[in-house]
Design a protein around this nucleic acid. Structure first.
Lengths: 355, 355
DNA sequence: AGCGCAAGCGTAAAGGTTTTCAGAGCCGGG
DNA sequence: CCCGGCTCTGAAAACCTTTACGCTTGCGCT
């Protein structure tokens, strides 16, 4: 084969053109194919490019061509099953459209989030997707307003997934789940199984996603005629460790409850472990429900009844919506539905303890 | 505040320079700080940049500056807990060094892998990390050899994580776990609990990672004086669904075993479910072990005894090693250790059935 | 034969930044 | 007083590709 690899440095289009005996302009046209070029010439150029193993310099191309199609998705951490699924959805939808997808993890640090968005701006990303609930304070509002305007002024789009827009006028899209409805449904499920003492484990005051779930929980209790004092929210935050710690603590303090509504499935995992450590059984002694339906929720002990939030679809929807109506959608708000999936972690309250 | 945001289009360094009353050269120096500039001048430039919300054009910068520090990690899928952890490790280590990290998912498709690597080449990534076992055929060898030479010729580095180099001479680093040792240890654990009929569930002939685990399994059996026929490998591949299907099938066909060594924890999850569906208990009737120790393995029913492969450390090590000795390391092979973590899924074989 | 038109292709500019080279101004030492 | 050298700054080249513009050539029509 006439396979003359160059030894060092990048092959430029000039070398390809030279080898094919044409100018760089013709080579560029033959390679990108957006301008008619006689078949014979094109073949010569393509051949030369292949022989030299030419790859276009994306930076030079972006400089003149207005930027590569690149989407960025930023999450708290990739190892959280929920975030991973959202990221996979974004990645898949982006790949389907020939877009490159960059994933960034912030570890929940606003500073790193800012740095990453800045980086994406420098890099010329045309779509930035921020995922996950957040505590909505003034700092947050200012930060996101800044992102939105900055990205908008360079023609990029911002999508907020599961977090609120600081102001409906801002150039950003919002797409999220109906957390309140999901929480209300699963709380109702617990109530109709006979439970009256239900504690919500995993509140995170100020966090929009959790607050909505707590609101749904309270609403369901009220709808069933329970007084406001029937609500018992433990603000332990999210994560398996937090759930384990809070549940252990709670069991030490009181038994005035027969069911636990965990803020998400990871909290539920911790709670299940704590309950088992205490020698109690689920759902015999205590019923437990979670939120999100992560892929392994059915492998918990017992399989977890939870609220399914189609995370991958959330990611796909984010890019689909952002790319659909370039102008129409600014400021739009999309709400995705959820549904409860029943497994084995909910039963009737133990006979002696029905309130 | 004198906060004059531009309405459209990107702010260039010329505008910053103009506003600060200096040339682009001075502005560039003040901003990147790699050349001394008097404090007063620098302050004026920084002030102007902040007022205009200037962000450098990374493409233009990369064009002249030899490229941004960017690492790419490519995995089969982000939602697999193991891959997610590796990706997180790469991401974390890259972020620590101020590098940008891009994550790509191939879905196991060689075509998409090639496209992604090509893209990274165009984009000027300086470090490409390919993660995960793979079937090592001629197509694979040719493909990887091509990546290696192509990346090397433009000064980028290639790291293979958990997959073999097609040829030691090739400019690529290899870093992986000692799959064989881990498998041998966990098999020995089963043997010393008294099991003699152990089936390996999740073989994937040709896949280097799985073949190594099978080899370790066979070696342990041999070391305990069992004949080669004692080995029973079910080639069902990986994933929860595959494990569930294969285990159901196996239970229908035979009971000539008292323990299952699952190819990874997801297979184990499926197997556990299948065993429970059949009305059998773990470890009372059958013992089960997995591989990888994914974060939720301790929440399985029962908590899974498995082999811990420090996945995040694998990712961190990949970038650390690649960045450490630019030249020295080419062709080097790094092996990371594993250890077995004992939980509740292994017990003695049932009394009537010890062989 | 002469003219017009289209196809094919090359020249050059543009895109934003970094960096080299050199010029200008200044200070101190000889 | 002069000159060497130092500090600060600016003009311009370089990075690589795309594309607007215009030139040449050849063909078909009158």
């Amino acid at each position: 084969m006439g396979n003359d690899m160059v030894s060092k440095g990048r092959v430029t289009i000039r070398e390809v053109a030279e080898r094919a005996g044409v100018s760089t302009a013709t080579a560029s046209r033959a390679l990108s194919g957006n301008h008619p070029v006689p078949a014979a010439t094109r073949a010569r150029v393509l051949r030369a490019a292949r022989d030299l193993d030419y790859v276009a310099n994306a930076h030079a191309r972006a400089l003149v061509g207005g930027g590569r199609k690149m989407a960025a998705v930023v999450v708290r951490q990739v190892t959280s099953p929920f975030y991973a699924q959202v990221a996979e959805g974004v990645e898949a939808e982006a790949a389907d459209r020939g877009w490159l997808c960059v994933v960034g993890a912030t570890g929940g640090d606003a500073q790193r989030e800012m740095e990453f968005v800045q980086l994406m701006r420098e890099e010329g990303a045309r779509l930035v997707i921020l995922v996950g609930g957040v505590v909505e304070d003034d700092a947050y509002r200012e930060r996101v307003a800044h992102y939105a305007h900055a990205l908008d002024s360079s023609g990029a789009r911002l999508v907020l997934c599961g977090r609120p827009a600081p102001d409906p006028e801002i150039p950003a899209l919002v797409v999220e789940f109906d957390n309140e409805a999901g929480a209300r449904a699963v709380t109702a499920h617990l109530l109709s199984a006979g439970h009256r003492g239900i504690v919500f484990l995993g509140g995170l005051p100020g966090n929009t996603a959790l607050d909505a779930r707590v609101a749904g929980y309270r609403a369901a209790l009220a709808e069933h005629g329970l007084p406001a004092e029937a609500a018992h929210v433990v603000d332990c935050g999210l994560g398996r460790a937090a759930g384990h710690r809070a549940m252990t603590e709670l069991l030490k303090r009181t038994r005035e409850f027969t069911a636990v509504f965990a803020g998400d499935d990871m909290v539920a995992a911790g709670a299940l472990r704590a309950i088992a450590d205490r020698g109690l059984s689920v759902p015999g002694d205590i019923s437990v429900v979670g939120y999100n339906d992560i892929p392994l929720a059915e492998d918990f002990n017992p399989p977890l009844t939870t609220v399914r939030t189609p995370a991958e679809e959330l990611g796909r929807a984010a890019v689909r919506i952002a790319l659909r109506d370039p102008e129409h959608a600014a400021g739009a708000h999309h709400l995705l539905g959820t549904h409860i999936v029943v497994r084995d972690s909910v039963g009737a309250p133990p006979p002696g303890r029905a309130l």
